[in-house]
Design a protein around this nucleic acid. Structure first.
Lengths: 360, 360
DNA sequence: CACTCTTGGAGAAACGTATCTCCGAAGGCT
DNA sequence: AGCCTTCGGAGATACGTTTCTCCAAGAGTG
């Protein structure tokens, strides 16, 4: 377009990007012509030249044959929404890419960085990205992956907070509805529960089921309440557990909260309208999504080119451990939304602060 | 990488893409070296050269200040998930881009095509994309936009089916909970309701509220049941209407389905577990998402370069109208999942077939 | 032997941008 | 008058592919 419009090609680039030293008159003239011609600079050429695509990958773990959980749990949907919004605010767009997608799709996209949700140990995808010099920030503390940074909730503190809350409400034997998969969330939460049981001298009462199978949840809830050592309070780790447990309680003639105290982890507000309303733990996916993306973009824009070493210098000291240690991580607080199902008095809301970073 | 590995640059390209005429021995040798070096061809360069990025935009309409509804209604989440999966299956990735995002973000991304969800009349974004030669397929029949193709439910048939269903169940006065926005879904559904009322001689009984405001839905549901001409059956156009209406009915001491028949449009399975279970209309977002993406990719891969004229020839005759008329559209069937809230006998499931394309 | 045909692969152009270097001209200074 | 500095902008190169054209050598044919 350039030459035809008024003059040369360098001038167009400079005028449109505000780079060179041109009189305002020339600048505005070039812009006006570009506008009139509907000229759009080629994103591909710009990406090739600058090495920046403005694209961020969002990788979601995949369970079973379905492409991904994405919307299966409200957590992911909320998190993705917040992440998209945050990225857009800084001029980046999100590409959603299941970890399972074939290599040719991943390889065919110029990514400035990647957000990885709950990477499994030794995730080959993360390793390859890291080797390629692509910054990776994970949602969920990574097991053994070389990520640039990570963000997570303090799951241990959250579970302990809930168990204490239920104890205060009068629970004598607290059960857990958990998952069979080995992701960080499930593992840390379950470990926290078991540790608490040991500490207070309660025999653990829990049922585990494959969390990605919606039917299995109802069965597990039923099983939990059918046990001879039936708990008088239950915490369910997954979103649908609340309704499942409520239905199971109804089947066994248990009144909530009188005979059974109930808490589940969920981002859904349907639990404000159930009968009775159910206390939920929110993992604050919006905050997590926003933080993850901002951390990632900081890394992208801060480091010049793929040495991958200077990145740590970008983060404030509170985010990183000393020297050449593990990647910097930050813990986000969770929020317990107390409703009728877990108490006999009036509701209130508590926020669990993260533990100091030193203990991470 | 090329020259260093074994030999020249053309050969590498040919070997990796299976293009030229090379002996298998050379091919495998080059591939092996590439593998060892961890060589990845530059997506940016390829895009620049071939004009194909493998990227598809997914544009979601935005309500108010929140970036987009995306997850607000399960419909969008499901649809996006199916679309992502379908795109991935054909080697494309999805970039999620709110229509409201600033121009510089849109312009900075090389898109092979775009999926637009429910474009408003005269959408400037769609017009610009179309002019740029980027294929656009919309979910929702476009009002006055030059799209390549579109996919939608037969909303009129769906509403009429529900009204008939409620009539058969004994409803004498059917109310509607609808929205104040002017999107196609709301408009067509409301018009179908009003038309039906005229035909059967019933006075319309409806309340409209801003669908993006979750609190307003509960208020509107309450208002509808508080009217002097209270309906004995209600259809709610939006996902949360079911629980809202159920709560309102409870407040007024109305038994469902005895005093009030209930149906709402929702993709959520929580309505299978409510008390009583609520009949829902599913718009089949999975099917829509899949179809939209496949149509779009057909258009992308079928037309050589942006004339934008030959595209219609790609579609089977049933998808297009004659000559130079409106863009080809296809209607997907909806599914009415009949549960206890709308009948006094045993549930069954009916599928409403789309009307013949001639009447589009 | 002179020729054509096939095989295996190299050379070079082009995609459209950003950026580095350089150049002419004009003005100010000694 | 000669020199330095700034202004406005042009030229050239590189980014890493894909693809079109072309070439050399050997094999087959008369």
């Amino acid at each position: 377009m350039a030459a035809a419009a008024g003059v040369s090609i360098t001038t167009v680039s400079d005028a449109l990007n505000g780079k060179g030293r041109l009189p305002d008159e020339t600048r505005s003239r070039v812009r006006e012509v570009a506008e009139r011609l509907g000229y759009r600079p080629s994103a591909a050429a710009r990406t090739l030249r600058t090495g920046r695509s403005g694209l961020i990958g969002l990788t979601v773990t995949t369970y079973g044959e379905e492409p991904f959980t994405f919307t299966e749990f409200a957590y992911f949907a909320e998190m993705a929404r917040a992440a998209t919004s945050a990225a857009l605010g800084r001029g980046y767009a999100l590409v959603v890419l299941p970890a399972s997608s074939r290599h040719d799709v991943w390889g065919n996209i110029a990514l400035d960085g990647t957000v990885v949700i709950d990477p499994p140990d030794q995730d080959p995808l993360v390793s390859e990205l890291y080797r390629s010099g692509v910054p990776v920030v994970s949602d969920g503390k990574p097991g053994n992956c070389p990520v640039t940074a990570w963000v997570d909730n303090d799951h241990e503190a959250a579970v302990l907070g809930i168990l204490d809350h239920l104890s205060e409400a009068g629970a004598r034997r607290i059960g857990l509805l958990t998952g069979t998969s080995t992701d960080t969330y499930t593992r840390l939460s379950t470990e926290a529960y078991l540790g608490w049981c040991t500490k207070v001298g309660q025999e653990p009462v829990y049922e585990a089921y494959p969390a990605h199978d919606p039917a299995a949840g109802a069965v597990a809830a039923d099983r939990l309440l059918a046990r001879p050592d039936r708990p008088d309070a239950v915490y369910g780790l997954f979103d649908p557990n609340g309704t499942d447990l409520l239905a199971a309680a109804r089947r066994y003639g248990l009144r909530v909260p009188d005979d059974l105290l109930l808490v589940c982890c969920s981002e859904s507000d349907v639990y404000a309208a159930t009968e009775p309303p159910i206390t939920t733990l929110s993992l604050k996916p919006r905050k997590i999504g926003t933080t993850v993306v901002n951390l990632l973009i900081d890394a992208i824009e801060g480091v010049d080119s793929g040495t991958g070493v200077d990145i740590a210098r970008l983060f404030p000291p509170r985010f990183r451990t000393a020297g050449n240690g593990p990647p910097p991580g930050t813990l986000m607080p969770t929020e317990l939304i107390v409703r009728a199902s877990s108490q006999r008095r009036s509701p209130r809301t508590t926020v669990s602060p993260p533990r100091p970073p030193g203990e991470v």
